[in-house]
Amino acid sequence: MGDVDSAEVWSYRASRRSTWVMVEVVADGTRGVGELSDGAPLDALVNAARSVSSVVIGLPLDVARTTLRRQLEKLRTAGEDAFLWSTVLGGYEAAFADLQARLEGRPLSTSLGLGEPQPVRLYANLNRRYGGDGPEAILAAAVDAVRNGFPALKVAPFLDNHARGMCGAQLIDAGIEVVALVRDALPSDVQLMVDCHHLVPAELLDVVVRELAPMGLHWVEDLVPIGDRSGMERAAAGGLALAAGEHIWNPEVAAAACATGALRYWLADPKHAGGPVGVARIAEAVEGTQLTFHNPSGPIGTAHAAHLAGLAGAATWLEFAWGEADRTAFLEPAEPVTDGIIRPTGPGIGCRPRSRRKE
């Protein structure tokens, strides 16, 4: 395989909450693409990713990948920018993996040793577009997602009210009302997840557990910090299935968080975890905790996560940012999602960006 010809980083404004950040690496006339969204404020993220692009130009593909990985792994262990650099690593590693698989003429999952790509269940994250519109808009979005075949949904009941200055018991009461409204409107066979975004005050944890436990939620995400073992154990004992892990790239941290058994679901995010190799390390570290895929991202991130689903088994879930209209036109070919299922293909991730409009 030849040398790396170029590495380009660019962004695409998809909705009021989402800007997708991409990196594309070209070798032998073949292009591989990865996503590194949400790793830092947009300008800082794009500038960081562009600052290391020259490292790989002109090097043989395998040498370029190894050289950049070593540099970024060092950067992500240093200081407050560790999460940023882990996400940059995740984007480049994804692009290199896609490029490698395309040059081999195989689907990404096969290239990674995970077998042929398989259909993956999606849950619709409603807050990437509908957050801030009020309970009725969120309810309408939930009903619409169910009509489109999604077997599970996720709501963020505290996020927008917190951003508007609501706090304490008022914040909790308003959030619980949103969850109850959506749960009551859903068919019994549709799963509901709740993302708390670490906004529940410690002194109100028991109240939230008591209110949410009877609702039959599939999981409750980021209710307490993963280092709060006492809080996690109380919430689990109160009847909640807990989920966490989206920002963690260190396997030792993941293993420690799962050691008590209070966490039922680990939410791996391929771009933040450092790409396919990082997710594989996380999957090994969390052992008996069910691995699922956090992914409030663009179609490129979704495609990569779908090819990694073989690390987690048939019981896994993949997050899908529901309601971002540009998704339908962004990829070529179109995103292979039908009735809440994604069916990944190849070669590589099986798709590529159609254009860079809205950069």
Rank of each mutant, 00 (worst) to 15 (best):
residue 2 G to N: 13
residue 344 P to V: 13
residue 85 W to S: 02
residue 48 A to T: 11
residue 255 A to W: 09
residue 32 G to R: 03
residue 302 T to A: 08
residue 352 R to L: 03
residue 358 K to H: 15
residue 269 D to I: 01
residue 180 A to Y: 07
residue 345 T to N: 09
residue 59 L to E: 15
residue 352 R to G: 06
residue 65 R to W: 06
residue 282 I to H: 05
residue 14 A to T: 00
residue 38 D to G: 02
residue 202 A to Q: 11
residue 210 R to E: 10
residue 206 D to H: 07
residue 83 F to I: 12
residue 47 N to K: 12
residue 329 A to F: 11
residue 152 A to Y: 02
residue 16 R to L: 09
residue 321 A to L: 05
residue 252 E to R: 13
residue 357 R to G: 05
residue 343 R to Q: 10
residue 109 S to A: 15
residue 305 A to R: 03
residue 284 E to I: 12
residue 154 K to L: 08
residue 195 D to F: 01
residue 40 A to D: 06
residue 71 Q to R: 15
residue 29 G to V: 10
residue 53 S to Y: 04
residue 27 A to Y: 01
residue 228 D to I: 09
residue 1 M to W: 14
residue 211 E to Q: 07
residue 170 Q to P: 01
residue 23 V to H: 02
residue 336 P to L: 08
residue 141 A to K: 01
residue 354 R to N: 05
residue 316 T to N: 12
residue 240 L to Q: 02
residue 307 H to A: 14
residue 62 D to I: 13
residue 200 V to G: 00
residue 45 L to Y: 06
residue 100 Q to S: 14
residue 215 M to P: 00
residue 70 R to V: 09
residue 198 H to R: 09
residue 242 L to F: 08
residue 48 A to L: 05
residue 196 C to V: 12
residue 351 C to E: 00
residue 114 L to D: 06
residue 278 G to I: 10
residue 254 A to C: 02
residue 202 A to V: 10
residue 5 D to T: 10
residue 269 D to A: 04
residue 230 S to V: 06
residue 25 V to N: 03
residue 340 G to W: 03
residue 265 Y to W: 11
residue 126 L to S: 05
residue 47 N to Q: 15
residue 219 W to D: 02
residue 321 A to Q: 02
residue 35 E to T: 10
residue 236 A to T: 06
residue 127 N to P: 01
residue 227 G to N: 04
residue 272 H to D: 03
residue 187 P to Q: 12
residue 80 E to R: 11
residue 198 H to S: 08
residue 213 A to W: 09
residue 86 S to H: 07
residue 181 L to R: 12
residue 123 Y to C: 03
residue 73 E to Y: 13
residue 263 L to F: 05
residue 270 P to L: 14
residue 282 I to S: 01
residue 49 A to F: 12
residue 134 G to N: 03
residue 51 S to P: 02
residue 13 R to C: 05
residue 78 A to G: 11
residue 10 W to A: 01
residue 190 V to S: 04
residue 191 Q to Y: 15
residue 132 G to I: 04
residue 173 D to A: 14
residue 338 T to V: 13
residue 200 V to A: 03
residue 4 V to G: 00
residue 175 G to E: 04
residue 54 S to V: 13
residue 75 L to D: 11
residue 84 L to M: 06
residue 313 G to N: 14
residue 328 T to N: 09
residue 207 V to P: 00
residue 203 E to V: 14
residue 210 R to I: 04
residue 181 L to V: 08
residue 72 L to C: 04
residue 123 Y to K: 10
residue 41 P to R: 10
residue 339 D to P: 00
residue 221 E to H: 09
residue 166 M to V: 15
residue 165 G to C: 07
residue 347 P to Y: 03
residue 125 N to E: 10
residue 268 A to R: 03
residue 237 A to I: 07
residue 297 S to I: 09
residue 83 F to N: 12
residue 161 N to P: 00
residue 197 H to Y: 14
residue 69 R to L: 14
residue 137 A to P: 00
residue 123 Y to P: 00
residue 286 V to A: 08
residue 215 M to R: 08
